[in-house]
Design a protein around this nucleic acid. Structure first.
Length: 158
DNA sequence: CGCGTTTGACCGGCGC
DNA sequence: GCGCCGGTCAAACGCG
């Protein structure tokens, strides 16, 4: 899972999610790597496997685009302005740090993201977004532009 | 009280 | 066919 093909959609106006930190933390030393995975092989999850009397129902195999963000930061929880609910955590192979699974709590918005640290460099946190938000951001991260301005965005895996 | 986290179990896919 | 592995569920717990 460490080999995300990191590509940057240069031709389109790509809107990265809002990245903000707690007021006590500085993101000035952060580096953000943007990666785009189109139509990746997401097994589309058996959304609700407790179909009471309807087991023959075949859930649609939705494959949402995945966007990988590698952020160099001291903290691993990046508040992008959306409301996330953690729904799982698993140990990652080749890494002594766990991976956390989050889901957007907005109704009808099943955007998921997972956060994990890099095995080689624990100061780098990789956040993978899956899906697109279809609702406005609630939290007013006004300094978002400021924060993004301080980051360096690379177009390729270095 | 309402909502988010924690944590072990569970499920489906895939490789051997 | 079996066992590993990555991802998800869900009940209990914690916190504001």
């Amino acid at each position: 899972m460490e080999n995300y093909p990191i590509l940057f959609p240069s031709s389109t106006s790509f809107h990265p999610p809002r990245l903000s930190l707690s007021p006590s933390d500085r993101i000035s030393n952060s580096q953000v790597f943007l990666g785009l995975q189109d139509e990746s092989n997401v097994p589309a999850s058996h959304a609700s496997r407790e179909n009471e009397g309807n087991p023959s129902k075949k859930e649609k195999k939705v494959r949402k685009p995945r966007y990988a963000f590698r952020t160099r930061s001291q903290i691993d929880i990046l508040d992008d302005g959306y409301r996330w609910r953690k729904y799982g955590q698993k140990a990652v192979k080749n890494s002594r740090f766990p991976r956390s699974y989050y889901r957007c709590t907005h109704q009808g918005c099943d955007v998921k993201k997972q956060v994990q640290r890099m095995c080689m460099d624990e100061s780098i946190v990789m956040t993978t977004y899956e899906g697109v938000h279809s609702h406005p951001v609630e939290k007013p991260s006004d300094n978002f532009e400021d924060i993004l301005n301080q980051m360096q965005i690379y177009s390729s895996f270095q």
